[in-house]
Design a binder for these strands. Structure first.
Lengths: 133, 133
DNA sequence: GCAATTAACTTGCATCTTGCAAGTAAGTTC
DNA sequence: GAACTTACTTGCAAGATGCAAGTTAATTGC
């Protein structure tokens, strides 16, 4: 009954995955500037760990070969329900700057929300789905 | 859009919560002997942190006042959906000793499973719901 | 009723992980 | 081709974790 905390059980991994999933971050620089405050060495280490775990892929961009695009794999995108439930729990229980009523809205529209996340992933939609709050 | 990783983002916290939720552990000793391999100082520290965060309560037992019973609060039990999704994901994607077909079963019976978890919590049912695998 | 046992920690110390600041290497722009 | 940008890497200090050995209070055994 392992719940996979060897890979995911740290301060940053799930945050990285969530930012890839709903905030539209893709590059190393995006993460540095995202305001999460993750140190570059840790970020690099986590990205390779997540890649080794098969949760993300790293591909060099054709248009600008300095850049590396990080993307969730099928395995990675299937963490969406976990992150959605965690988000709902957080909005409900932790004092947060989230818009009032968001909790209820998310709870009532779980399937639609998940579907939208998956669509965005499939179509490589770069627009953020949720803001930072 | 915080996902509460200040409290939950470490190797042990979610594991402790899960063990309280579905494995029927209650005391310090239970955790020591659970096979998770958590050091006693870390266990003590995590338990107080979870208590401070309002996720668990600690109550001295009347029958044996050496013992302290740890229990999930309402806030704590509401992490059930998160842990269930994480469990499903783990069974699907990580090589595990989980019984074949468990993933499908859990996925198809999410609501029933959650309801059972909540009932066990409300009625203080001490029987494990899931084994260790 | 007192010694042995048990439960829940605490302490000291070594090791591993994290964070910060500065540096490097490769690709791109001016 | 010099300046810049992107994705890292390195060195080191500080913090977190793990292990083994206490400590304290409650309970049991005789």
């Amino acid at each position: 009954m392992s719940i996979s905390l060897e890979t995911l059980g740290d301060r940053w991994s799930l945050l990285i995955i969530r930012d890839l999933m709903v905030r539209g971050l893709r590059t190393f620089k995006d993460f540095q500037e995202s305001g999460e405050g993750i140190a570059t060495n840790i970020l690099a280490e986590r990205l390779t760990r997540l890649e080794v775990a098969g949760i993300i892929t790293a591909t060099r961009e054709e248009e600008d070969r300095r850049r590396i695009s990080y993307r969730l794999t099928q395995k990675g995108i299937e963490l969406a329900p976990v992150l959605l439930e965690l988000l709902i729990w957080g909005v409900r229980h932790e004092k947060t700057d989230a818009p009032a009523g968001l909790a209820r809205k998310l709870e009532q529209q779980r399937p639609e929300f998940l579907k939208e996340i998956k669509r965005r992933w499939r179509e490589e939609d770069p627009n953020p789905l949720l803001p930072r709050f």
